[in-house]
């Protein structure tokens, strides 16, 4: 999987994070996300209709008068928010190098998090019901930096996620330290 020797390049030729080549997440992931988000807004819109037509309780005046405005707002949000998230999902990607794992995310605020394999405490695969159905998995990476700085690469094809996990677990840096 990797060579025994560490290529110790001189300092003026440092491996550069600028040259990282990111693999985008599979299109299925962003489509599923889009669908889930749209369903959520559809549900909210249906809920407003249900609220108006039900007869068990009387709505507060503020809500019943502004029902149309609320629906308009929700419809607008249903276009903008899932759209934004869809575009943001498109930008997500990961890059695996011999000694570290990077994850890029963000549309307006772009961030690249890099985790040296040597400093990984443990990795976890997480799969929700939708992810299980779609054959996807999230790879969670924990370092000693604490819960605040845990990052997850979502929407990986299961085989790929398992492959990365194996790469990390079998990495000689990790194996040595256990």
């Amino acid at each position: 999987m990797h060579t025994e020797e560490f290529v110790n390049s001189p300092i003026n030729e440092l491996p550069d994070i600028e040259t990282l080549e990111f693999t985008p997440l599979p299109p299925l992931y962003r489509k599923l996300n889009l669908l889930t988000n749209l369903c959520l807004f559809l549900f909210l819109l249906l809920a407003t209709v249900a609220l108006q037509w039900q007869s068990w309780m009387t709505l507060p005046l503020v809500i019943s008068v502004n029902m149309d405005t609320i629906r308009f707002g929700l419809s607008l949000a249903a276009v903008v928010i899932p759209g934004y998230l869809y575009l943001a999902d498109k930008r997500k990607g990961y890059a695996l190098r011999q000694h570290d794992l990077s994850y890029r995310s963000g549309l307006i605020f772009i961030s690249v998090t890099t985790q040296p394999v040597l400093r990984i405490q443990h990795v976890e695969l997480k799969r929700g019901p939708i992810e299980r159905k779609a054959g996807l998995a999230s790879l969670q990476v924990f370092s000693a930096g604490g819960a605040m700085h845990t990052f997850a690469i979502p929407g990986l094809p299961l085989a790929k996620a398992k492959q990365i996990r194996r790469f990390i677990l079998e990495h000689k840096d990790i194996a040595q330290h256990d």
Binding site: I17, G106, I108, F109, I110, S111, V112, T113, T114, Q115, P116, R119, S143, A144, G145, H149, F151
Partner: peptide, 11 residues
């Protein structure tokens, strides 16, 4: 002592 790095940039 570095555990993880993050490079962030807004548009």
């Amino acid at each position: 002592k570095i555990q993880q790095t993050r490079f962030a940039q807004s548009i």
